[in-house]
Amino acid sequence: MLDFSLNGRKQTVDVDGEMPLLWLIRDTIGLTGTKFGCGQALCGACTVMVNGVATRSCQTQVKDVAGAEVTTIEGVSGKVAEAVQKAWVNLDVPQCGYCHSGQIVSAVALLNDNKKPTDADIDAAMSGNLCRCSTYPRIRAAIHQASQTLEG
C-alpha cells in the first residue's frame, strides 16, 4: 500500500512499486491526459509535477512518489496555469496536440519559478519536451504571452 496525493486528492494504491508513475496514472487511476511517448524520459510527453517540479512520469517509479504531491494536466490550476492555457488557446499552439499536456506542465513549472523567462530560459526549461509538429515558435510565444498576462 502506498499513499500519495494526485491533483489534490489522496490516493492509496496497491501496485508493484517499480511500476512507472505514468502507467499508474493512465492505466490504474485512469487519467489519460498524461501521454506515453518514449518511456525513457527523452520526449517529455509524460511530464507531471512532483512536489511542484516538472518530472518525467515514465521514468519515475511509483515507490518514489510515496507521500508526494503529484499534479497532472488534469490538475494544473491557479493563475499561472490559467495564463498558460489561455495563451495556448489564444495562439492556437497545438497541431496534433499529443505533446501539449507535457509542454503545458513544463511551461507552468517554468513560470512558477520564473515569472519573466527570457528566450534562453525557455530553451533551457522546454528543450526536453519534443514536439514532432514543431509548434515551437508558438510555444515560445505563448509562454511570453502568459508571462505578460501574469505581470499585467
Binding site: 487519467l31 489519460t32 491526459g33 498524461t34 497532472t72 494536466i73 488534469e74 492555457q85 495556448w88 488557446v89 492556437d92 499552439v93 497545438p94 496536440g97 501539449h100 499536456s101 503545458i104
Partner: peptide, 9 residues
Amino acid sequence: DSTEKTNGT
C-alpha cells in the same frame, strides 16, 4: 480543438 489539446481531454 485547441482547448481539448490544452487541458488533456
